[in-house]
Design a protein around this nucleic acid. Structure first.
Lengths: 340, 340
DNA sequence: ATGAAAGCGCTAACAC
DNA sequence: GTGTTAGCGCTTTCAT
């Protein structure tokens, strides 16, 4: 019997008067087991309060039913939404999800990712904070598939699930230009961030398509908080030739810009990437490049699970989640999105 | 060498020309290892691209550096905030966090919790969806500590980290009564939810303290979405003797009530439990029972980690995270909270 | 349809 | 200081 700890399969086998292997067969619902024998085993399991040690099973079989999600910032609702969606898909398919946050730090990402591989997770979903991911080459080669989310990775064969950043930004700016705006400000987070570069590129494409060029004086980068964005917006509005419209590269920039604009009651059209909670409650109408956050998580999870199931034969793919330009604010709509 | 898979400690030992145990010592930075030997081992590790198999280590040692967090609803920003805080504390102390969501379903909670115990997680942080947790008695007895979060559990010795629901609600309603409101509506989610019962009890305490009693006609329960709350608010406002103030039991109720009140431009004081994003941006002043979500996660994680470290000797404790009654909306404040 | 034996990769006792 | 020997609890051969 158990010496001090939990009951093991051996204890169950002894209790049921069968062999170890029979217990294993019953627990894993393998075929070719006598019903009466199975019943005896189940009885013994019940009596002993036995629970299978998944660690041991995983060690022996080499399989693992845990996925890992390394986000760039788990405190961000975006990644949290992704995590929830991921988790839902995984649990539905009998797997679990470990989550961790790199806090946008390349070294932390590397440490976490390798640490999770040490735990022999079944696969890795990674929001790149690092530039180069060849440090994962061995893990991928040894059968731990990786899916990049939100930003592309490099250095290893891996699938990627991204947002159509360029297309979404282009559509938003095309609209501003079509509305006759001559001076359009652009507020962005750090250019080191992939999505910011793509969104800026999208804005530039819109200008090119209109046969115009973006005024560098109206592009402000490195805005990390709404406060940064608010200050930047203030400077733009106080300049000699202020913008009449602004495109914001993410929801923090949008909120900051709005705060300044609303405080001044300035006449500036606002368009921004990323929806945010209660955006529909804003007293002023704005346009938002919106997309389905859950869709991102669902696609990443299914892509990873499929690759695990298939053994990783197929070519790495890159999926783009589409965006939509929508109205927010300006009225209290009845079909407001549910507060999570 | 490796037959097909990853290199093992044995491979490293062979490569470095030392024994298995020496490699183990080097990897676990045990004392009493010759520096030169350690260097040789590190070289071999580097050459082979060896990564320790944490599963095997955990199986053998019986310890596990993964914590599990079973939330009631991972799509809720509240639990996500908790999860992020938890995760931060855990990673800081060299542990990982697995997250799962019971979706407020007792059976799902049980399945998930036991499943995670099968994985021999080091400890469990649980938001109870079930009423009875004696199904975990064996796991707790076998050394898997449990901490209940947000709601108390039952049937097992376990720590709990809760919000001061009663105190917060009482303070909010005391204030409404002190402001001279004769008729105060109360909007709540399902009474099956512990926090709702506590918050209602707090409201009742406030009435008692004022020598008054709550009018049952003004208490509406079972409001799960903002839409439900909005409809309930509409009914209250259309009644023959409508309330002049309303206390909302959670942020969904607050948002729904506000939507109806703002649409009608009704003169109703609003006070609600739970802060929410952009609440400061509301065009109308409200009062919010606020608390530090991260604090909840941090306390739960440290409590669990301490219990794991101490072997679980101490008596189970219950901690109450304090609340504060704060102003929201009514103006654009400069010190707006950061958008996550 | 069932069982015996081997071993997954590592750590914990003991030797030396 | 270092090596040798046992297992952790399970799944996987392979035999019966």
């Amino acid at each position: 019997m158990r010496k001090s700890g939990r009951p093991t399969m051996i204890d169950v086998a002894a209790e049921a008067g069968v062999s170890l292997k029979t217990v294993s067969r019953v627990i894993n619902t393998e075929p070719n087991v006598d019903a009466a024998m199975a019943a005896r085993v189940h009885d013994a399991i019940e009596r002993l309060g036995y629970h299978r040690n998944a660690l041991a099973a995983s060690l022996r079989s080499g399989t693992n039913d845990t996925l890992a999600f390394v986000a760039a910032d788990l405190a961000n609702t975006f990644y949290l939404g992704v995590a929830a969606a991921l988790s839902g898909v995984a649990v539905q398919r009998g797997m679990h999800v470990v989550m961790a946050s790199s806090e946008e730090d390349a070294a932390a990402e590397r440490r976490l990712a390798l640490d999770l591989c040490q735990r022999r997770v079944g696969g890795l979903i990674l929001v790149p904070a690092a530039w180069d991911h060849s440090y994962l080459a061995r893990e991928v080669a040894h059968g731990t598939p990786v899916v990049f989310l939100d930003r592309p990775g490099s250095g290893i064969p891996a699938d990627a699930v991204l947002i159509d950043n360029r297309g979404g930004a282009r559509a938003a700016v095309v609209e501003l230009l079509a509305a006759g705006h001559e001076r359009v400000g652009i507020l962005l987070d750090a250019p080191e961030i992939y999505t910011m570069r793509e969104r800026l590129a999208g804005a530039e494409e819109a200008f090119s398509a209109a046969g115009r060029t973006l005024d560098p004086a109206l592009v402000v980068s490195g805005l990390h908080t709404p406060q940064d964005a608010r200050a930047a917006m203030a400077r733009l509005l106080e300049s000699s030739d202020p913008p009449t419209a602004v495109f914001c590269g993410n929801n923090r920039a949008t909120v900051g810009a709005l705060e300044e604009i609303m405080t001044r009651d300035a006449d500036v059209d606002v368009s921004g990437f990323d929806d945010f909670e209660l955006s529909w409650m804003l007293p002023r109408r704005i346009r938002i490049v919106s997309y389905d956050i859950a869709e991102l998580g669902i696609r990443a999870a299914t892509t990873l699970l499929d690759r695990i199931a298939s053994g990783g034969a197929a070519e790495p793919s890159t999926q783009l989640v589409p965006t939509a330009l929508v109205d927010r604010g300006g009225r209290l709509s009845v079909d407001a999105p549910r507060l999570p």
